[in-house]
Nucleic acid binder design. Structure first.
Ligand SMILES: [Mn+2]
Ligand SMILES: [Mn+2]
Ligand SMILES: [Mn+2]
Ligand SMILES: [Mn+2]
Lengths: 220, 220
DNA sequence: ATTTATTTTTAGATTAATCTAATATTATTT
DNA sequence: AAATAATATTAGATTAATCTAAAAATAAAT
């Protein structure tokens, strides 16, 4: 099994994520949108990934990631998230600055490097956005988590992850004072527009929009 | 100025190194040999780099790196060497294991990343092989250095760099006990084969071959 | 059940990077 | 100075990854 190109790794990651870790079939157009490319390019790449048995592809029917593909995708995801931890923990980047750089670093090929990096970082289990880091075998467990938007009134929680990792969104969270580990209590829910009032760490009263509520994930 | 491809960066680095930092013209064949590729591929790439004004290329006459090209090459070299320091100092790699990985890492594009990495490492001036690390402006100073082979008998020195960074050579140095910072005294020189006897740190008597003597650089 | 719209694939081009084989240029030797 | 050898460039293919436009398949609407 020859090693994958950057493009192939990126496609595999997209298929993995869009299928929710391999559960559903994924459409050509959804991949094109996710990767900001054209459907024609996707079809072509799917044919090639299929020849390498990284995906199960039936023309016009959608694509599923194979076991082999899932293993490869999870290693790329592992690298991405470990590098993000490195950037935040060691190089003092903010969590909104690390994604693009990790997109590059995730393609560095050296199992030993990743093993050493993992050691250096103390085997972190989650990245700066609360996403779980797969181990060498692709295994990981996620924290149970639910969007703030779905928490019932007066419900408590702890922020454990963000769904969107867009830089603007993360900067907004910084500005209003929401961070991983923050304690939340939903004090009011507005039916009309999905916005809500929450209490952060028992002291900061915040009004957050539906968009924010849907993209902040809490556990309790 | 659009950013350079990995291939372009690698060619630029080769031209820079082979020309001894831009002093001489470089031949097509020497680049082909250095990069383990074919002369035809080199000609093609030189034409393209020339269009981008990264090199001054006269067909059949050889190539010189331009000022623009030198700046680009030095930034890649800076990244390569900083990453090597990171791998050795922080991830506990041995100096013979870092080159291939740095060959990949040197192409990551993020000025901020390199600035932060440099901070994190404490602004090192030399890499694990004793090579100087250019600053953000491409400036650096090398230690005065001479191959052990050229040191006269009974001459003292300190090992400051290695000319060859091949893994086998570095492992050999590890085995016989030569390392950066070691104190050397030439105790005997054999005309016949260029080998010599040296005293390391005033206590270890070593016989070293011409090959070793030519690739260990000392200062005094 | 047709027709229409949407989605997906294929056909044909393009660009970067590589190769082999053929040609051209420059250097070296008679 | 001509012949030969060494070096370098071009011509023509190939592969990966992308694109636009055309064709094919599937889904939705009449
Ligand atoms: Mn990310
Ligand atoms: Mn992340
Ligand atoms: Mn190196
Ligand atoms: Mn080095």
């Amino acid at each position: 099994m020859k090693k994958l190109s950057f493009a192939e790794e990126n496609y595999l990651k997209a298929v993995y994520h869009l299928s929710n870790a391999g559960e559903f079939d994924v459409t050509t157009n959804s991949i094109a949108e996710e990767m900001d490319t054209k459907a024609a390019s996707v079809s072509d790449m799917l044919r090639r990934l299929s020849e390498k048995e990284m995906v199960v592809y039936r023309k016009y029917q959608g694509v599923k990631i194979s076991e082999k593909g899932k293993i490869a995708a999870l290693q790329v995801i592992r690298k991405h998230r470990l590098w993000e931890v490195f950037l935040v923990e060691k190089l003092k980047f903010n969590w909104d600055q690390v994604h693009e750089i990790a997109e590059q670093l995730e393609h560095i090929k050296s199992p030993l490097l990743i093993q050493r990096l993992d050691d250096f970082l103390g085997h972190p289990k989650f990245d700066p956005h609360g996403d779980p880091i797969p181990d060498e075998n692709g295994l990981f467990k996620e924290k149970p988590q639910v969007p703030l938007a779905e928490v019932e009134i007066s419900g408590d929680g702890i922020v454990v992850a963000v769904k969107d990792t867009n830089s603007m969104f993360l900067q907004h969270l910084d500005r209003i004072g929401i961070y991983l580990g923050a304690k939340t209590k939903v004090t009011e829910k507005v039916e009309f527009d999905g916005s809500m009032e929450i209490l952060v760490d028992g002291k900061n009263k915040l009004f957050i929009s539906k968009e924010v509520a849907e993209n902040v994930l809490v556990t309790h």
